[in-house]
Write a protein that binds this DNA or RNA. Structure first.
Lengths: 153, 153
DNA sequence: CGAAATTTGTTGTCCACGTCAACAATATCG
DNA sequence: CGATATTGTTGACGTGGACAACAAATTTCG
């Protein structure tokens, strides 16, 4: 809304800018929605400083204790190299730990620390808040419809 | 699929990693879909080196010749500062131009060059290919359903 | 068995992108 | 007119994705 007030230099009384072919590009709208969702998520979880990516990592480790970085990487489609640094920060904050994997000397068995578990609990509560807000923004029917039809890829 | 072959170090015969609470987070699936779409788009348009963001800029300029950078920025939710550099590259490549705006000395009237128009024509054809592939991947019904219910934000 | 190939975690590098602050030129408002 | 706002621009910072290269460990297979 900051610019709709002025901007009279165009044709005459043409208020809105046309999206043109973008209206037929699903990717454009998926992107816009994704950005909105992430911004809202980040805002709501700013008090505990957990990003969407960090949240997904914590959730998957909690649901699969002892899994390896390669497995986690493949599950979340986060590059192995990127995951290394992501886990480094979580470990620095005392939320996760890499234990030696019994049997395979290359692997690390990932686990949440006690702190990690408690942070995850709070994160889940805030994420649920975010999800509720999203549901309200979209409308319950549309929300359910999207959730049901989006689990692909 | 590259890792499911090995990875026997976990419990015993537990093939898949659990997503846990992520299954109830719409944002997670929106993100995954968006990443898939962008990668496919980038791949299909790699021959003319047009990114999703560049494509959206070209499309909107073509649909609204003479609009200002601020209007374009607000329309596509691209930061003004970021847009400056984006347009700089497109101008370097001879695809867009910034004409002086009649009346307002601060604004630039954005236009496609002749080359820009021809590149956009090819880009639209490739984008249509991408869109067709996406439709096939999702299934026609699901595709339409998502497109119809995604124009929000 | 032992050499070759593969997997895993890691580091380094490069580029795209979002964000924010600051600024000059211009326009608008009071 | 002076104060304020808008527009385009530059600079700087941090994050993220993508690749290449590597060492250690494991698996494959002749």
């Amino acid at each position: 809304m900051p610019l709709r007030k002025s901007a009279p230099a165009r044709r005459a009384s043409e208020p809105a800018i046309e999206l043109g072919d973008l209206n037929e590009r699903l990717g454009y709208f998926v992107r816009r929605l994704q950005v909105w969702i992430f911004q809202d998520f980040i805002r709501l979880l700013s008090s505990i400083e957990i990003s969407p990516a960090q949240f997904s990592v914590l959730v998957v480790i909690a649901a699969n204790p002892g899994l390896s970085q390669a497995e986690l990487s493949a599950t979340l489609a986060i590059e192995r190299a990127r995951l290394v640094r992501l886990l480094h920060r979580l470990e620095q904050r005392g939320l996760t730990q890499r234990l030696p994997s019994a049997g395979d000397g290359r692997r690390h068995a990932l686990q949440l620390t006690r702190d990690g578990q408690s942070v995850l609990t709070r994160a889940k509560a805030l994420a649920a808040q975010h999800e509720a807000g999203l549901k309200q923004k979209l409308g319950a029917e549309r929300y359910k419809l999207l959730l049901d039809n989006m689990r692909i890829v």
